[in-house]
């Protein structure tokens, strides 16, 4: 029971649908949703990857298919090797992944966070609530179609919102911070600049409301 160096081959011989995944460092595999739990359990019990380090997801953009990929990182506390598992979500609008809470209680909060920030649901998760944003927040902020500045929503507390007239407004992007643009574009467009350029040293600042 050791975390072999060639974990990919070991998994491929055991699970037919597992394929190697290009990676910059640790061994990594792609696998379908149906095999996730079996592979995680096999890694934990047979190959000594007993430590669930992290669960997260990547949004590949509104146009992309598959749009969401869920990623697990495991570590072996005895052999100190990592392995990365990746699963493409079948649906672009309602991404679902299986929950690992039955295998590691640690998965609970990681999955809640992934649901909160990216909107990936974990089927049969015992307590899938938001964890970082407040209950009732309507968006998933780490999705690529959500702007960094945010979208206006009321404050979580209605009484305080009435009292102060404050709401969760888009953050001002004028004058900085200089943020970069991602995607396939030429470098001139991608370079960091203030997102909002409604007023500059040449154009006057519009009167505030």
């Amino acid at each position: 029971m050791t975390a072999t160096a060639d974990v990919t081959a070991a998994l491929q011989s055991k699970f037919s649908q597992v394929t190697p995944r290009p990676s910059g460092d640790h061994p990594a595999i792609n696998l379908p949703a149906s095999e996730v739990l079996a592979v995680l359990k096999y890694l934990r019990d047979e190959l000594a990857y007993d430590f669930l380090v992290d669960i997260t997801a990547v949004d590949w953009g509104v146009e992309a298919t598959p749009r969401f990929t869920v990623i697990w990182h495991l570590l072996s506390t005895t052999d100190h090797q990592y392995v990365r598992l990746a699963m493409d979500c079948a649906s672009n609008s309602e991404p679902v992944a299986p929950t690992a809470t039955g295998l590691w209680p640690a998965a609970n909060w990681h999955e809640r966070e992934t649901y909160d920030l990216l909107g990936v649901k974990f089927a049969e998760h015992p307590d899938l609530r938001r964890i970082l944003m407040w209950d009732g927040y309507p968006y998933h902020p780490l999705r690529k179609d959500f702007p960094l500045a945010g979208i206006e929503v009321p404050l979580p507390d209605i009484e305080v919102a009435d009292l102060t007239g404050a709401s969760a407004k888009p953050a001002p992007m004028m004058g900085g911070p200089f943020v970069a643009s991602t995607g396939e574009m030429n470098l001139t467009d991608a370079e960091p600049r203030a997102k909002d350029e409604s007023w500059t040293e040449f154009r006057e600042k519009p009167a505030s409301e």
């Binding site: 944003m133 902020p141 959500f146 702007p147 960094l148 500045a149 945010g150 979208i151 305080v160 102060t164 404050a166 969760a168 407004k169 888009p170 953050a171 001002p172 992007m173 900085g176 911070p177």
Partner: peptide
């Protein structure tokens, strides 16, 4: 003023409340 956190989650100055 919100400082370096110009993002969706941060109140841009406590003087709003």
């Amino acid at each position: 003023s919100g400082g370096m956190y110009r993002s969706y989650a941060t109140l841009q100055g406590v003087d709003q409340i």
